[in-house]
Nucleic acid binder design. Sequence first.
DNA 1: AACAATTTTTAGACTAATCTAAAAATTGTT
DNA 2: AACAATTTTTAGATTAGTCTAAAAATTGTT
Lengths: 218, 218
Amino acid sequence: MYSFTEENYLKAIYKLQERQEEAVSTNAIADSLNTRAASVTDMVQKLSGKSLLIYEKYKGVVLTEAGRKVAIGLVRKHRLWETFLVDKLRFTWDEVHELAEQLEHIKSEELVDKLDEFLGFPKHDPHGDPIPQQDGKMLSQALILLEQMPEKAFAIISGVVNHSPVFLQYLQKQNLVLGISVEVLEKNAFDKSMSIRLNAEKEIQVSAEVARNLLMKV
Amino acid sequence: MYSFTEENYLKAIYKLQERQEEAVSTNAIADSLNTRAASVTDMVQKLSGKSLLIYEKYKGVVLTEAGRKVAIGLVRKHRLWETFLVDKLRFTWDEVHELAEQLEHIKSEELVDKLDEFLGFPKHDPHGDPIPQQDGKMLSQALILLEQMPEKAFAIISGVVNHSPVFLQYLQKQNLVLGISVEVLEKNAFDKSMSIRLNAEKEIQVSAEVARNLLMKV
DNA sequence: AACAATTTTTAGACTAATCTAAAAATTGTT
DNA sequence: AACAATTTTTAGATTAGTCTAAAAATTGTT
Ligand SMILES: [Mn+2]
Ligand SMILES: [Mn+2]
Ligand SMILES: [Mn+2]
Ligand SMILES: [Mn+2]
């Protein structure tokens, strides 16, 4: 078993690696974990010794298959717990991330699998992120940003880029939640704000900042 | 907030204090936490500095009201999580203790209260132990041991003294589970074993060891 | 190619929690 | 009351994870 701290490093590296193809830098890891580069160097040397990642001095790190497996297991647990908190305990989607950060470190394969079953094998968490299955696979839909949609196009709100509570609370208040259908009425060339219609009913304005943080399924 | 380790010490001291009136000894704590007396001395000095217990050199420790509150909070979380695992996730009563040992350290008042509500405010955990409420109070029924019951008496199985998985599995197999009504048919003077009837139906034999580990509600 | 800026590593120190071994205090027995 | 046995505390070390400051390597710019 891996320590709480080791697990957090592996998940952070996995998330950084997700976007880019290159090795993950020491500073990038330090930033994402709110720690110092020196601490990161120590830890990646330790994780390298356990064959969870490949580390070359001054070259950054890449997870091994073993490291990736651990990280995906953590993502699976994190997203299942978030789903439990929202679907069963009636937390709102802006309240669950920090709790899931704790719960994802509970050690038990059986627990996570039974939780998965109890929740009805959900495919997505409360933020629209895909939930990895037992075998580590997860379905990734092709989503586009709201800002990329042309006028007159239709799509369904299916995810968020920014996961901050303040953004999620704003979306909730505007009823910009998962599953809502959106029609683009007008794109303002000046400030990139948009007029959109929700569920063929209410018409609202959203800023460019909002438009570039909403993921849509066409 | 208190560390994982501090919490474990507080709960262990609380449990040891429950039975006896006197101060809890260093060795008793060391035994119950599988650690060394020297480590216990260090930690109780630290907890004393935080006013969670009263420590006098060579005299043992007693929890303060603050320390007691923390410990009861942990017991509440432990027993609610056990109830969740059995009632919702379909674990058996012999499987949940170790998992609850992890889950009881998740930090969130709101989570435990919502879990309580989700479970329908249960009064007892899967082993018959009372679940403390938000205010720290818990109802304690007067229970007696099966071995103390006279012949021809009736009572309901309401708790266990020994919580070990092997004992719980044995009880399950014999259908000696919570809620079953028991009639004492005969007490064997030689080996203290007993003949009992379950739910006015099946008749079985239980050893003295079993009889002194089953708690009954008259 | 040389130098400056940035990134990364190393060296050394700190904290929380633990241990062993030895010293000190308490308890039990004669 | 004296001494032995037991319990508890102290002293000093260890491990995981972290930090700051300084050294080393890499990258960017002229
Ligand atoms: Mn999250
Ligand atoms: Mn999420
Ligand atoms: Mn338990
Ligand atoms: Mn229990």
